[in-house]
Write a protein that binds this DNA or RNA. Sequence first.
DNA 1: ACTCGTCAGTTCATAAACTAAACGGACATG
DNA 2: CATGTCCGTTTAGTTTATGAACTGACGAGT
Lengths: 162, 162
Amino acid sequence: MKWDQLADETCPIARSLAVIGDRWTLLILRDCFAGASRFEEFAASLRISRPVVAARLATLVEQGLLEKVAYQERPPRHQYRLTRLGRSLQDLMLVLSSWGSRELAGGGSVEHVHTGCGHVFEPVVTCSHCHEPVDVGAVRTRFAPRLAKPAETSLDVTYGRG
Amino acid sequence: MKWDQLADETCPIARSLAVIGDRWTLLILRDCFAGASRFEEFAASLRISRPVVAARLATLVEQGLLEKVAYQERPPRHQYRLTRLGRSLQDLMLVLSSWGSRELAGGGSVEHVHTGCGHVFEPVVTCSHCHEPVDVGAVRTRFAPRLAKPAETSLDVTYGRG
DNA sequence: ACTCGTCAGTTCATAAACTAAACGGACATG
DNA sequence: CATGTCCGTTTAGTTTATGAACTGACGAGT
């Protein structure tokens, strides 16, 4: 499988990763959520090579996660801003941040404040039907019936085989 | 910044990506959640080069997300199974899958069933304090006070500058 | 006018990562 | 003894990323 064929996969995880699965893309988006908007900010924050910053920003604009907005004409200057689609990754960023803080060495160096209630919080993934937190192991994933097809390997199983 | 320095960052998103930010790692983990456990299953499912499959599985074992368990001695055969740490990525996988289904072309080709209530559901990220869904834009991220330090660029802002 | 600095990239040569294809060993089957 | 399966490794070639330097448009200072 080539990287750029991933977008054509049926699996939504594969399609998501085709957009944000690049090594640096989520770090660029993190900086966007943190308020960064200019080329030099991303380059300084990530300390990766400038061609890569330029390439990633270009594809993010192309994919509609960021938009390039001119804020002055002379000299031409613009900022990269999150679109609605880009902002829709907030849930993912929260869960990713929370996982790293909870599970990895280094601990929780950042806090998230819910402006709705004003408190520091951790994201809790709940069920849209019963509103209870979704416990580890309490999920089965299957092909949606309308698209069911003979799969190469069945996905209609829980994890852990033996 | 080099890829392998990411694990030493303060930011939990950077540290998370040091573990799962590789191009293929989340696809391998997806297959694990779907029940895959053997080398040939991963190689067939991902259709990426076998050395990369071997390398990714090895680092996942090293990082403690998978464990390599012998299931027969002669010939020596083993399976890769999710550890507790690996299973703790369930939330992330759900949110990633849901985002792809909702926001990207291709639609929702898989469904998640919550075995707690028995219904098909979408993951909803809620606030651990007030239990309300966390709306887009309703989050501020800041350095945790005990680790507050003069940041190169302040992270204590919401997204969208101008 | 001349030099310096900022911003947003691009170009270039080199270094790292990935790739397909073939090979290896340890066994099982026929 | 030949073939097949499983789990990789080796090899050689291609792709991608890297740091460093460069371009170009402009503004500020002298």
